[in-house]
Design a binder for these strands. Structure first.
Lengths: 247, 247
DNA sequence: AGGTGGAGGTCGATT
DNA sequence: AATCGACGTCCACCT
């Protein structure tokens, strides 16, 4: 247990030095901005990052219960309770965490220049798939990748052996109703512009029952993206994932 | 600076006692599961919550750079580096954070039964709006709120003075193309089931240009939700937000 | 347990 | 600066 005065001084020093500040104690939290919220007393972890990020964590769940984004300005003052406040403009928002007792305060300078390397994103999947569209259907030729339309961007645009335009919507996970409506939007837009029939193919490893029903009733096609039977490139992507996991 | 052996023992004790465990030090991180990722050495904050949540934070940004959800199982072992591992099933995933040096380890028991009270959610907006649909159009009568259909749920279902069904899609913020396609999906499904014309109204404080264009071309209507000129109840909701911010 | 959509979503990319 | 869509989205809620 630390006195609130001691805590205040430690926090002020950490903020001044642009360090990561951790505060653990019993507090209530108020937020007002895009919405508004109130959280009664409880033990919480407060994290203030050098970039202004402000996070209040409870003892469970991944997401912070209250937060403020990068660029926010943190201030501290003592008024019976130890109040730690974070403000930002655009949008105008603030949080106040008011501590009645504090178990721990820690300030740490953080040196970290590295970025995450992620493998298996939708974009990578599209890149690999573009190299071998015959995987989906023989004679399919890529026209342009991520053709930018008025209504969002098409994942893959292609032409089949009969000369029909084919819109391919890719999902790296299970496709739901939203994936179908998205595909539908692209196909309708393209149909209107080109004045001729456009095929739509939804391509994912899985799809929900409702989504498949809707897909068929809209006259579109489904292609199950099976990593096992896929091209060397896509299988390679999977293999790379595995290698990473072994190290 | 703490020795890795000391750190291991502290962490093990904290995990055993179901406490919140904080670890700050230099580590690399590997993840494999729905995707795969690698993060090279750097100073990071690791948070392990009593419910199994596992978070790796860098010095900037709100979101954890690597994470594992509630229910994951954490283990610790020393193998030159201090490796802290988190595993889960469904989906099968794991993270390993390997520390080469540790600045701080802290374990804290957390007592917190309180939940967030949030004001200004879409649900609340729908509640208030239901009480006075005349706000949108004279003679509009509520049929039901949140009617669950096969394909999702309609925010508000109503009947206009001419006896037409009216689907109202609410967005508490700026509406985009997705809001329009969602409305469209509901209207089409209801039209098919009822066999008669169904009106669709999108209701939000703002809407993007593309979305408005698509909305009109699909024959739907837009109602700008202006808090200032709204009913006492909705204005009251705004007032409540303000009060919370004053305290 | 799975489906569906909201979120104070956050984040990055492109215009 | 605004718009748009992905995300290992997370999360609550309903079937």
């Amino acid at each position: 247990m630390i006195s609130l005065t001691e805590a205040r001084d430690s926090i002020l020093e950490g903020l001044a030095k642009q360090e990561l500040v951790l505060v653990l104690g019993n507090c209530k939290v108020k937020y007002s901005g895009r919405a508004a919220s109130k959280l009664s007393e409880g033990d919480r972890l407060l994290v203030v990052k050098p970039d202004g990020t402000f996070l209040v964590h409870q003892k469970s769940k991944m997401a912070a219960i209250n937060y403020q984004g990068p660029g926010s300005v943190t201030s501290v003052f003592l008024d019976k309770l130890l109040v730690i406040k974070s403000e930002r403009k655009k949008p105008v928002e603030f949080i106040e965490a008011s501590f009645n007792s504090i178990k721990f305060v820690g300030c740490f300078s953080m040196s970290d220049d590295n970025k995450l390397e992620l493998i298996g994103s939708e974009k990578q999947l599209a890149d690999e798939l573009m190299l071998d569209l015959s995987l989906i259907e023989k004679g399919l030729k890529p026209l342009q990748k991520e053709s930018f339309m008025q209504k969002g961007s098409i994942d893959v645009l292609a032409e089949d052996s009969a000369g029909n335009l084919v819109v391919i919507e890719l999902k790296r996970r299970s496709a739901g109703l939203d994936a179908v409506t998205q595909l539908k939007r692209y196909v309708e837009e393209l149909q209107k512009r080109k004045g001729r029939r456009v095929r739509g193919i939804l391509c994912s490893p899985e799809i929900t029952d409702n989504a498949l029903k809707m897909l068929y009733s809209d006259g579109f096609e489904y292609f199950k993206l099976d990593y096992e039977s896929s091209s060397a490139k896509i299988k390679g992507l999977q293999r790379k994932q595995k290698e990473l996991s072994e190290y």
